[in-house]
Design a protein around this nucleic acid. Structure first.
Lengths: 203, 203
DNA sequence: GCGATTTTGGACTTGCTGGTCCATTTTTGG
DNA sequence: CCAAAAATGGACCAGCAAGTCCAAAATCGC
């Protein structure tokens, strides 16, 4: 890859990443470079021109792309969890998003292929989880500062537990096609907050 | 494969499955048939003799093997969740088991390879989740019948949420190497039960 | 003990997939 | 307008991994 990409080059590179993401969502690990080339109407030399380290490098780029989508799809709700209504809206968007996604797991497939252990891959997941959890925690703190939940609530632990519940709910949804667990996890998590309502401030 | 296996045949077949499970745990999807053969000191003809449908059939057998281990490793605690102490013991065993397992995900790797959608694979996961959740729910009912938690607790939903938290905690542990989320999920789940303590029966 | 059946060894085939290479076209910058 | 750099097309290669096959050895049932 040359030092600087032209506008055309950037467009092609982006087209390859997006196309690859699509193919990987549809076909999972079975997707081959030729499939990606066919879908993106690119040639081998283009692919290796923009991703000199080959498939792994491309997969990592796709992983970043997909990780960004995960949070973006939850906005703007995830960023404004400062009332019970906004939590409810977020919940609805989240559940709907994953029910629609069905049984494809873009990130999971990617990581098993590229190897979880590879530092690049691990960094992507870790960053995603941290950001996600931070936004949940921020929402809980917002409720707390409004006096809607008890000051005694351990926000960080509650956020970690909620995030775990979401992840597990999603992965059960992936493997069984049933969103019951995702719903149960999120709803129980929110109830946990409600149960910690700060009664001292209530009228 | 002949209609009936001799004792020797069964032993070989089992040896292949266990060896394959080991290799897959170590190498993930990168594991090849030749790796498995080397590890199990078996030949190609043996492998295809006992698994005529090839790699997929073997992977499915390994998946069954691993799924059985998941629950077995939690026993006898998981089967006797009838006091707060037993819940705590189960929690410790569970966390320890997955911390020791580290970042290998035997089942996850298997399913992505064999294809989640394949009915055989889906049946294995679904059955595992159902049994697991049933045992959690049974434990909650045991607490309830002893008057330790409120009769108002929605046991099935609480069990679903707890299971989701465990799954998510484990998968975050896999990808980040950090067991914080698993601990938070399980502990929060148990606290959720404690919070539903049946005060009407307390002295 | 003996024929039938099962189990085993391992060479060989085949198809595919990631990756290389070079020639050609297009774009850029001055 | 032109040389240098970037972008593109696509044939070609090499390696590997799944799967096939046949013959030999071990074992079983009687």
């Amino acid at each position: 890859m040359p030092d600087t990409l032209t506008a055309k080059g950037r467009a092609t590179r982006a087209r390859i990443i997006e196309g690859a993401a699509g193919i990987l969502r549809e076909q999972g690990p079975a997707a081959t470079l030729d499939d990606i080339l066919a879908r993106t109407r690119a040639s081998k030399s283009q692919l290796f021109h923009y991703f000199p380290d080959g498939k792994d490098q491309l997969l990592l780029a796709v992983a970043r792309f997909e990780a960004d989508r995960v949070l973006a799809d939850q906005q703007p709700h995830l960023g404004r969890l400062d009332s019970w209504e906004s939590w409810q809206q977020w919940r609805d968007v989240l559940v709907e998003r994953y029910e629609r996604q069905g049984d494809t797991c873009p990130l999971g497939a990617l990581f098993l292929q590229v190897g979880r252990r590879r530092p690049g891959a691990r960094a992507i997941v870790t960053a995603l989880m941290r950001q996600w959890q931070d936004q949940l925690a921020a929402g809980m703190r917002a409720l707390r500062s409004k006096g809607l939940v008890s000051p005694a609530l351990d926000v960080d632990r509650a956020a970690a537990a909620l995030l775990a519940g979401i992840q597990g709910g999603v992965s059960i949804l992936m493997s069984t096609g049933d969103s019951t667990h995702l719903r149960a996890a999120v709803d129980t998590g929110i109830e946990h907050l409600r149960a910690a309502t700060d009664r001292s401030r209530l009228p």
